[in-house]
Every structure is written in C-alpha cells, then in structure tokens.
Design a protein around this nucleic acid. Structure first.
Length: 491
RNA sequence: GGCCCGUUGGAGAAGCGGCUUAACUCACCAGCCUUUCACGCUGGCAUUCAGGGGUUCGAAUCCCCUACGGGUCACCA
C-alpha cells in the first residue's frame, strides 16, 4: 500500500475518553503497520465547548499511551494548520465554489422557524428535515438580505432520488437514499463550517487514505460522500468500528465508571495494559495469545479482524490484564508507578530518602501479585497498619483452628519478644521453630498467624507481611489476638 | 417515526456453506504446585449459535420475516 495516511481528529470538548482512545489506536496501528503517517488534528469548530485544556488533555493522554504522531498539532507538517479554526480560508474557498455552481445556497430561516418545522414533522410521524424554503431564492434576494445585515447559514443542495453507497472496510457495502436526507447546513451563521463539511475538506487536503472512526458516524457518511462528489474529490476508504458499550449494553458513559484515559492512569493502570485492552475492544487476534505490546499490535492488527458488533467494556478483564502487566514489569518500573500512590496516601514522603524508597520497593514487590492496579496499594497496606478487626467471616475458620491458634500465637509472641528485629528470613526461621515446638504446621499454623496479623485468610507471603507490619506491630497484634480468642472460645 | 447497523455461554469473542461433537480469553468450579495465601500449571464449564420460515445433499455461516438492542435524522462532533 502506498502513502497510507491516517488521522485521529478529536474535538477538544473534554478529556480523551476510552472510545476516542480506541479510535486513535486503530488509526495508529494501521498507519504504523503500513509504514504510513499517523496525524492528529483538532476539530474545534464548536467554539462553545472547545477548550485549550481539553486539547492538552487529549495530547497528553495520547502520548502517555505511547501513540506519538508524525504530523499534526504541535508536530507540524505540510498539510497544516491542523486546527480547524485556523483553516477557515480553506473552507471559505470551497463554499464559494459550491455557491457559485449552484450546489449550495444561503438559508435565512430562523432557528425558531426550523424548530417549529421539525416539531410539526415529527408530530406527523415524518422524518424531520429541512423543507427547502430558501432553496430557490434568487441571487438578488440573497444580496438584498445580506445587505440588510442578515446572517444566513449555507446549506448543501442534496440531489433527489439518488442512492449513495459506501464500501465500508468493516461493514461492507452500505447504501442510503438521498431522499432521506434534507439539505443540510455546511456553514453556520457565524461563518464557521459544520463538522460534516470541514472533515471532508480536511481529509482531502491532508491526503487521508483511510478513515477509521466510530459507528455513530456511519449515518453521516452519505452526506460526506455527497460533498466529495460535489467538490470533485476522491474519497478515502472508510472503516466504521462499533461502539463501546457498558456492562449493561448501553452506550458507555460516566454511569459505567471511569471513561477518561487519565482516570485509568490515576488509578494506577499501566499504559501498555490499557492499550492492550483497548485493542481487544472490537478487534481480536488470530492466535491464542492476547497479550500484545504496541509493536506486537502493529504487527498483528488488521481491519478484517475488526468486529461489526458492539464491544462491551469489561472492567474485570482490564483489571486482569493490568495485573498481568504489573507482574511482568521490571521492579524499577513497578516502583516508579507505585510511588505516587504511596505518596498520595502519605505512606512515603514527597521527598523520599533512601530508606523510604527501599521500604516502598519492598512493599510493592511483596504485594505485586495481589493488586490489579497500583491505586489498590494504599488500602492493602492500611490493612497492616491499622488495628486488625477480626470480623465475623472469620468465625468458622477460627472455630476450626480452635486452641491450636492460641498455642501457635503464644509461641510466636514469645519468640518475637526475644528478638531485636525481624527480617524476612528471620521470620521464616521463627515459624519453623514454632512448628517444631508446637507440632502444628501447614495450614493450621499459617492461617492462625495470618489471621492474627492481618484479619484475613489471604494475602502475600507471611514473611513479606512480617516486614510490612514490623516487630512491634506483630507483637501488638499477637496480644490483641490472644485477648480476642479468649472471648471467642468461651462463647 | 424514516433510514442505517447489530444479535454466538455468566461475560468478551473466534467462526465467512462441509475440517465445529462451536476456538481462545475473563469469571467460576475442581485438581496440582506452595509447610499458608497468591502467582503459575492442568482439567471442567454452549448437543447449540435471538425466534420463525426458506435455499441446499449439508447452515452459526446464504435469503426473507418477526423480536430485541443500538446509531442517526442539530447553526454537536
């Protein structure tokens, strides 16, 4: 394939969300696969809702995910500028051409008028669409209205009785009747072009070869096709990917939890895990392997394995995937990602000393198998720092353990008191001795200790927990447990 | 309401007319490993592909209808 050029063209009206990131990723992957260009442009024609902060968020999110762009905002290139509000003259020329050729016309209808028309149409069960009141106004009429200060919109004259079809790379041939489309607005009364018009010109002038975008744009595509025709431009190839749904199968929204990329970053997800997960949303690899880094995805990705049916966002799977990446990461990388969460929770100072870093490292390594996101770390650690609560769910286990638990903890307590400090190895040895002394080993031994120290039957290796709790903490917990058991065994 | 898209297990998802007694992954269950807990490993988990017709020697795969879900018809993108 030659001159493959793909783009991600978000409107900066909010943070980059999961759906946008997935679109960006698919465009990125295809561009890289064919050694083409990936570019980013901003569709900021909605002056009300666009903001510089959103643009920054989107760019930061893309970079964080590892999707650097070859061309576009901040990166430059030959087809700029890459913000629609900076391309107004390009659009103006095209509008003038359409107006001159009679393919578009000024419309002076007021918004109230249009609202009323639409309402009446829906009331009658008709498709709401522009009736064409201004379609046949003469140029003289335009001029006199313009002269008297009217601010018209420009509408595209949709040719009646035609069929427009697109050959979609994921959905196949999709056809629409032009009779179902009213003359649509291409330039707003403030002179800013509308999305459907601006995209066409941008994609043409930026020489885009493939447009991968969400399914919500499928119904808009015939309008764009009409514009390509009217302007005499060749069309890019289209690929409309299915929507991302929440667990309840409705369109993904805040109700379903976090939807922005930064939210996942802040919860302690690794970018490579999120990218991997995003790729699996609507695309499936050929073999059994589901774990792919960006380069692996570039190689494996192809549009013919993109699904037509909507993809459901499965948070459980994202968590699992993130857990896999956490476990596979290098210890330094784990520490780098864990540190901010430890600092936010006040467990490590903002300016950590060597000791603090060592502690953070130790804790992170001890808990790496027990978390699916780094944000879970503080809560887990809190379990070893706050007084233990021996909850009701432990009842059965404790009953089964019975006097053995008391015997074990008494022995452990005695040994701890005799020691100065506790290392992981020292603790292992300590338990061995307890086993020898009491004759209790295996599950009864470990579960007694685990429950006494953490109030839970599951968690990391006991020697690692020992380091997190420390000698004093353990002694305190042993005593507390013995007090608790006295009452428990009586009742 | 018109137009357009979709519908495979608890969940995601492969499948593109015979190789399917429906891959793979998550979740779940069982076993192994571990003196504990996890990690890891092994095995189990849809006689059936929304429902109904049809085409065919043969259909999850092609056609039609119905139901359900979604998108779109904006001076939003």
């Amino acid at each position: 394939m030659k001159n493959v050029r793909l783009r991600f063209a978000p409107s900066p009206t909010g943070p980059l969300h999961i759906g946008g990131a997935r679109s960006a990723l698919f465009n990125y992957l295809l561009a890289k696969k064919y050694r083409g260009t990936f570019l980013v442009r901003m569709e900021d024609t909605d002056l009300e809702r666009s903001s510089a902060a959103s643009e920054e968020n989107i760019k930061d999110s893309l970079k964080w995910l590892g999707m650097d762009w070859d061309e576009g905002v901040d990166a430059g290139g030959d087809c700029g500028p890459y913000r629609q509000t900076e391309r107004l003259s390009i659009y103006r020329q095209a509008v003038d051409k359409l107006l001159a050729e009679g393919k578009a016309y000024y419309c002076f209808c007021s918004e109230e008028e249009l609202d009323r028309e639409r309402e009446a149409q829906s009331a009658r069960g008709e498709t709401p669409r522009y009736g064409g009141k201004c379609r046949d106004l003469t140029r003289e009429e335009w001029q006199s209205r313009l002269d008297s200060g009217a601010k018209p919109v420009v509408r595209f004259k949709v040719p009646p009785g035609e069929e427009v079809a697109i050959d979609d790379l994921v959905r196949g041939r999709v056809a629409f009747e032009t009779d179902g489309i009213g003359d649509f607005i291409i330039v707003k009364s403030d002179g800013i072009p509308v999305y459907n018009f601006a995209v066409v010109l941008d994609d043409v002038t930026m020489k885009i070869s493939h447009v991968i975008r969400g399914e919500e744009h499928l119904s808009n595509t015939p309008r764009q096709v009409l514009l390509y025709d009217a302007l005499g431009y060749a069309m890019p190839k289209f690929a409309h990917i299915s929507l991302i749904l929440g667990q309840d199968k409705t369109k993904m929204s805040k109700r379903h939890g976090s939807t922005s990329v930064v939210a996942y970053r802040d919860q302690g997800y690794l970018p490579e895990a999120l990218v991997n997960f995003l790729a699996l949303l609507g695309w499936s690899p050929e073999g059994e392997e589901e774990i792919f880094d960006l380069d692996g995805l570039v190689e494996a990705f192809s549009l013919d394995r993109v699904s037509k049916s909507p993809a459901v966002f499965d948070l459980e799977k994202l968590k699992w995937l993130n857990g896999v990446y956490i476990r596979n990461a290098a210890p330094e990388r784990r520490l780098a990602f864990a540190l901010p969460h430890l600092q936010n929770a006040g467990l490590v100072p903002a300016e950590p000393a060597a000791d603090d870093l060592l502690w953070a490292q130790t804790v992170t390594e001890a808990l790496k198998n027990h978390i699916n996101a780094f944000g879970e770390l503080p809560a887990l650690i809190a379990r070893y720092r706050q007084p233990v609560a021996y909850g009701e769910e432990l009842g059965e286990e404790l009953k089964a353990l019975g006097e053995d638990a008391v015997t074990v903890i008494r022995a452990v307590l005695a040994k701890l008191e005799a020691l100065e400090t506790v290392s992981a190895d020292g603790y292992k040895a300590l338990l061995k001795e307890v086993k020898k002394e009491t004759g209790i080993g295996g599950r009864p031994l470990f579960h007694s200790v685990r429950i006494a120290k953490t109030g839970s039957t599951e968690g990391p290796d006991m020697d690692k927990v020992a380091i997190i709790i420390g000698r004093e903490g353990m002694i305190e917990r042993c005593r507390e447990f013995l007090r608790f058991m006295e009452h428990f065994l009586q009742s």
